[in-house]
Simulated scan of single mutants.
Amino acid sequence: MAWHQISVITNENTAPQLADFFSNLGAVSVTYMDAEDEPVYEPGIGETKIWSNTQVIALYELDADPALVKDLVYKQFPQEQLRAWHVEEIEDQPWERAWMDYYHPMKFADRLWVCPTGQEQHEPGTVCLTLDPGLAFGTGTHPTTALCLEWLASHDLTGKTIIDYGCGSGILAVAAILLGASEAHAVDIDPQAITATQDNALKNKVQNHIHCYLPEQFAPFQADVVLANILAKPLIDMSGQIASLVKPGGQLVLSGILQEQAESVMQAYQPYIDFDPPLQQEDWIRLQGIKH
């Protein structure tokens, strides 16, 4: 099956209205893309931040009339707010497998492989985590996730309890179990993340060792290791809550932090945690420390 794909660049105020208008005109999907490589780092919970120059992309079935759609859009919105109108016909494809062109086996600390289905690595002295891109964030390709995987693969987790706070795809919880942890507790505000974590636990045959919760379902307790790969603002806002999950003498690993945010995050946890020097990959920082 083929589709009409219509894209146009507009400003951040017009983009949501234009997306709604496309939907009202029968678009089967509407997405946003950054038109100028402008980073947007920290949306609040439930908030969708978009770029000052946003490409709005609408997908229509082939019986739709792109010329009519354009005419109606230009009657509804000032022409000076719309630029780079483009229409093309695209072929349907299995989008999940298209990710495989960019996602290949990765190795962390000479102990942990993260591999897409069909490319598993079975090397002596290593474990292999099978993971395919899906609805929830976290395949190991982003520096924030890679930094956490590197930490897990560099430490002895034998028999330890883990809390993965903001679990996304569940990659950290699954990796921890494969590396010897006895149990992992995965928490996320997004139900899709819970589903993805459960699916990935099953795929890696560790489902009996991983417990998944929405925040309101989670009964706080103290674990040997707590990982929180989220963003600096929620890490700071929840510093007391997250630190309380770590046993005295236990380890805390924080990620999702930009270089310029690291000092503020460390200050928020200073009453509870003795930090090691930060570790940086690209623009991102990992903080790790021991609870007093």
Results as ranks from 00 to 15, higher is better:
173 A>I: 09
89 E>I: 14
135 L>T: 09
134 G>D: 08
161 T>Q: 13
2 A>V: 01
27 A>N: 05
220 P>V: 03
223 A>I: 10
234 P>T: 03
267 Q>R: 12
90 I>R: 11
224 D>R: 11
94 P>E: 15
182 S>Q: 14
193 A>H: 04
246 V>R: 04
164 D>K: 02
25 L>M: 08
243 A>S: 15
177 I>D: 03
95 W>D: 01
152 L>D: 03
277 P>S: 14
25 L>H: 04
85 W>E: 02
91 E>M: 06
226 V>T: 05
256 G>T: 13
12 E>Q: 14
280 Q>T: 15
158 T>N: 12
16 P>F: 03
100 M>D: 09
26 G>Y: 10
68 L>N: 14
73 V>G: 05
86 H>D: 12
243 A>V: 08
10 T>K: 07
163 I>P: 00
57 I>V: 15
276 D>G: 02
130 T>Y: 04
271 P>M: 06
147 L>V: 06
90 I>E: 04
125 G>V: 12
277 P>F: 09
60 Y>A: 01
214 L>K: 07
11 N>A: 05
142 H>R: 10
291 K>T: 06
96 E>V: 12
273 I>L: 09
156 D>T: 13
40 V>P: 00
261 Q>D: 15
86 H>L: 11
245 L>D: 10
132 D>Q: 13
129 L>K: 08
182 S>Y: 02
221 F>T: 15
193 A>G: 07
103 Y>C: 04
126 T>L: 08
74 Y>P: 01
114 V>P: 06
155 H>F: 05
284 W>P: 11
11 N>I: 03
141 T>E: 15
77 F>T: 04
212 C>A: 11
12 E>D: 14
197 T>C: 15
74 Y>K: 14
8 V>D: 06
105 P>D: 01
267 Q>N: 10
183 E>I: 01
248 P>N: 13
75 K>H: 04
201 A>N: 01
284 W>S: 13
233 K>G: 00
83 R>N: 03
122 H>K: 13
10 T>C: 14
134 G>A: 14
232 A>G: 08
139 T>L: 12
189 I>G: 02
154 S>F: 04
5 Q>P: 00
73 V>F: 02
115 C>K: 09
28 V>H: 01
52 S>A: 13
45 I>N: 13
142 H>L: 12
265 V>P: 04
140 G>R: 11
77 F>R: 02
165 Y>S: 07
152 L>S: 03
25 L>N: 01
130 T>A: 08
86 H>M: 11
252 L>M: 12
184 A>L: 09
281 Q>N: 11
157 L>M: 05
209 H>Q: 15
93 Q>T: 10
291 K>F: 07
75 K>E: 13
239 S>R: 09
18 L>K: 11
205 K>W: 05
167 C>R: 04
180 G>H: 13
63 D>L: 07
97 R>W: 04
208 N>I: 00
21 F>S: 03
15 A>R: 05
239 S>P: 02
148 C>N: 04
261 Q>H: 14
59 L>G: 00
35 A>Y: 07
66 P>Y: 02
9 I>G: 00
179 L>A: 08
251 Q>F: 00
21 F>K: 08
